[in-house]
């Protein structure tokens, strides 16, 4: 008899918790895919499209659906590392097909040569170019992500991509060099190598 009761009790519990879980899965269903948001947070938001997707969020969605994590040149190794940590994957080297990691750049319009065609304004994914038809255009440098997308549409080639210069406000100390540990008698040799 006791076996019947215990089976009955387990059955009741199973139904109870099953119902609870079923209710919770409907009631507390997350909107959208939360992993996409987390991936999107890590991506550099350059919106350059070098990964083959029209923006960072579409690439985040593609990664969530199993696409490779090494297609983002602006993010480079550190982004790949972070993505690998998040998704519990092995970090892989950057896929050279999509470009190589470069220092941060900004677009600069040579304003004398600008003819005011607004083509770059239409190309800029973050609205960082200011201007109007037949008026000179200029880049809002603080908002420019250095995505390169304005360079091709320019009919007079007056946009340069310039690496961002370090100034006092952005400079910071570098870790000690050499980073590896050497014994004192090898110091001269390592200095020569460094030079």
């Amino acid at each position: 008899m006791i076996i019947v009761w215990s089976i009955l009790a387990l059955l009741v519990l199973a139904v109870l918790f099953g119902g609870l879980l079923g209710y919770a899965s409907v009631r507390f269903r997350p909107e959208g895919n939360p992993i996409v948001d987390q991936i999107d947070q890590i991506l550099p938001q350059t919106q350059c499209g070098q990964c083959g997707h029209p923006g960072c969020r579409p690439y985040a969605e593609a990664i969530a659906n199993g696409e490779a994590i090494n297609k983002c040149p602006p993010g480079g190794e550190s982004t790949i590392q972070e993505l690998a940590d998040l998704l519990d994957m092995e970090p892989v080297p950057l896929d050279a097909e999509h470009g190589e990691e470069k220092p941060r750049q900004v677009a600069i319009i040579r304003e004398d040569e600008c003819i005011g065609c607004t083509k770059c304004i239409q190309a800029c994914p973050v609205d960082a170019i200011l201007g109007a038809a037949k008026q000179m255009h200029t880049v809002i440098e603080s908002e420019c992500t250095g995505c390169d997308l304005c360079v091709d549409p320019c009919p007079v080639d007056c946009i340069d991509m310039v690496p961002v210069a370090t100034h006092l406000q952005t400079w910071h100390w570098q870790p000690p060099k050499p980073d590896y540990q050497i014994i004192a008698t090898d110091r001269d040799r390592s200095d020569q190598e460094a030079a």
């Binding site: 960072c56 952005t170 100390w173």
Partner: peptide, 24 residues
């Protein structure tokens, strides 16, 4: 010092990325 600088820079970059995302 290097670690502090890098952390500050990464935070600034993250903020900038966030701004770029909002603008996009």
């Amino acid at each position: 010092r290097a670690a502090k600088g890098t952390i500050h820079r990464e935070k600034a970059e993250h903020q900038q990325a966030e701004r770029a995302r909002i603008r996009f």
